[in-house]
């Protein structure tokens, strides 16, 4: 098989079922967004994994710098009071 010549990379997000959020599942190469959608369907929803698909050009995603992780995320470590642990969650709510 040939490598994909000059197709850009797209990140794929799949919604497993109504009411849930779209989750990142991987990426595909495609000539444009429409083709990326078809590729995503063929690659990531073959086993009934989803009811909706989003595709985003990988270069359109701005990612945080791992080197800055300490500054960005460490300060939250000792602030347990931010967790809403005092709520009782009804059993019927499955996907909070």
């Amino acid at each position: 098989m040939h490598p994909n010549p000059d197709w850009p990379l797209y990140e794929i997000f799949v919604r497993a079922r109504g009411g849930l959020d779209h989750k990142h599942v991987g990426s595909v190469h495609a000539a444009d967004a429409a083709m990326a959608l078809e590729h995503a369907r063929d690659v990531y929803t073959r086993r009934l994994e989803g009811v909706s698909v989003w595709v985003v050009r990988s270069t359109d995603i701005l990612a945080s710098d791992p080197a800055e992780a300490d500054a960005l995320f460490e300060p939250a470590r000792d602030k347990v009071y931010r967790h809403p642990t005092f709520y009782d969650i009804p059993k019927e709510v499955e996907t909070l």
């Binding site: 040939h2 190469h29 078809e38 590729h39 690659v43 073959r46």
Partner: peptide
């Protein structure tokens, strides 16, 4: 299968 121009097309044709 195994010969398509791209792996994504390989899966598309196989599907």
């Amino acid at each position: 299968i195994g010969h398509a121009p791209a792996i994504e097309e390989d899966l598309g044709l196989a599907n």
